[in-house]
Design a protein around this nucleic acid. Structure first.
Lengths: 204, 204, 204, 204
DNA sequence: AATGAATGAGTGTTCATTCAT
DNA sequence: CATGAATGAACACTCATTCAT
């Protein structure tokens, strides 16, 4: 591939990203089902026809967008979990650090998460399935945390249920936090959340 | 009102209900936005035009449906909470009983809850707002439980966060349970859920 | 035909008339194209289905109504014209008497005439044609008047044009009079109208 | 605005006009209420959807069309009247010239006038009102002619009635002339019309 | 690559007509 | 005869996608 070709390749990818970001932004505002191609292209500062030079259908932006959401979430979760495992500190501190990472992530990607939790279910059935896959995947990661905590002396329990409790809690509480525009102090939130979950999991 | 009029009044209301149930059933299958009036009427065993003898628009069924969901949820939550308060038993048992009530409710109204949690966000903005109102309302009820538990010696904590933890957990875990077609044994689910939440809330 | 049958025949005709009058009344209010069968039956104090016991289609009421309008107008015009011919009085007085007859007729049947002039054109093409036939028929009668006036010494003229002038004038002025709710004094109207037309026709 | 933008602006306006003309043509043929968007777009040689790139509703074409009719008529009437006033010639000649102007106008815009007089009443109430406004406006102009004629020695009369006579006559006769496909010789028509009206108005 | 007019299948809604009660 | 729920064809309008420029 020539230098010129590489360059145009990069420009093309950037334009695609612009469309995806525009779509994300309009979805958040108008809702997924009330967003028209025209809304997306207008926000991207270009024309309807041009959209089809980058995507073969409306479906495709959505798919790319969803895949991006999924990749982001899964990689973030994994990254934070690795960090959690590698730290040789008391579990309650480790979990608190983990949640700090989540808090940062939810802050930075709030539109993404709102769409994921508030709108993705209302899309086509296949996206609902995808959403549940992501949640399951996240829960699997969390389950490893629970098992890890068992090594620190957690009581005997069904780790699948506990993992699901953690998943639901983390997501539900952070989405609430986003919706309330981060009114509650981050450290207060994290301390309480950690306390409930870790004590709930470890106490005999 | 004559006897004849009363009868036709009743038949009319039943027909309306049939439409609402048909709509619920199709929504669950195809999603709100992919449901056509024709789908609803076909399932109700009648014609497109007849739908408009009972509802003035597609919007209206949705609204009636949502209002029904909301009323059901809020009244159920309240009813179960009253039952919780009036029982003079150790908190862990009381919570377990409460959760048994929830389990029963989620089992009986699974379509309702799936639509509420998986699809309502994807609908128009006003329904998203309604959904969040219901969640907030539920959380308020839960907060009273948390405060009640404090009287039994729970540690010092932010009850709003803990209430949100409970809300997210209960809903997230039960929805997961519905989606998995109630595979996990009910008592196991309830025991674990209760353990995590009550210990997480009460342990010093 | 038995007495009983005759009676029911009469009742049936009366019911049909009730529908026709109701239709006329609603047309005048809502306009022809915004009138629904339901509007007509509601005004007639009966049900939609019953309408079809008396007319085989919506089209039929309209046709009967129009035919009634046409018959009324044509017979009235003729009747008044006969009266005009048989009176051996100076033409200006005879015309004035004729116009008095018209004024009475327009007063009594104002809804009828408003529909005829303001709405009938907007109906189907065949009704537009019918309307023009009635106008032509009226003009033919008027032409006889013009010819009669020639015998009294009217100047040489094209009687078809003059007849059309009279027709347009009579109808246009009386419709305006109805629309203005008969504000202008009847005698003033008639005197002026007669003066213009008779002098315009007779003066050399 | 760039040259390119100006060009596209012009093309757009021309397209709009094409739709309006197509609508006019179909209305004349099928009547307002039997005209479908598809009829208009077919005649304009384009597709249903494209219509909505130029008008926001079916109502809008009608409104634009009516406004066009009204503007045309009012401005024409006024223009011809100005011409009438500025000529210092005997009134009968001036009126004859005025009517020649009308004849030309009715010839050139025959579809327009047919729709205005034969169909506009059958449309929605607001269009009926508009039509009557235009007629009233025309009558006001005519009244000035009558008053002018008084200065030349017309007899004492109610100028409002006489003006209404003129209005009804001019419109009724010319519409008849259009409907008969201009069979009657124009000069014969105008001579007779002028004779009747001027003599009818001026003779003592 | 960029534009936006053009396309037409698809959807909600209306309403004349039918028919079981 | 009377009722009004049921029917379904028809229409206005929308919007993803195409395509000439």
């Amino acid at each position: 591939m020539s230098l010129r070709e590489k360059k145009s390749e990069i420009i093309k990818r950037e334009k695609r990203n612009l469309f995806i970001l525009s779509a994300l932004s309009v979805f958040e505002e108008k809702g997924f089902n009330n967003t028209r191609i025209k809304d997306i292209t207008k926000r991207a500062g270009t024309s309807v026809g041009n959209f089809y030079n980058y995507f073969k259908s409306k479906e495709e932006v959505i798919e790319v967008l969803i895949r991006g959401l999924a990749d982001l979430m899964i990689s973030k979760f994994r990254e934070l979990f690795v960090y959690f495992k590698e730290n040789k500190i008391p579990p309650i501190s480790a979990v608190r650090n983990l949640f700090r990472g989540y808090a940062k992530m939810f802050r930075e990607k709030k539109e993404t998460f709102l769409i994921f939790f508030e709108q993705m279910g209302g899309m086509d059935q296949k996206y609902r399935i995808k959403r549940n896959e992501i949640l399951d995947n996240f829960t699997d990661e969390v389950e490893k945390i629970i098992i890890k905590l068992s090594e620190y002396g957690a009581r005997n329990q069904n780790p699948k249920v506990t993992a699901r409790v953690w998943t639901s809690t983390v997501l539900g509480v952070f989405i609430w936090w986003i919706r309330s525009d981060f009114k509650l102090d981050e450290e207060v939130l994290i301390k309480n959340l950690t306390d409930v979950l870790v004590r709930g999991t470890m106490t005999n």
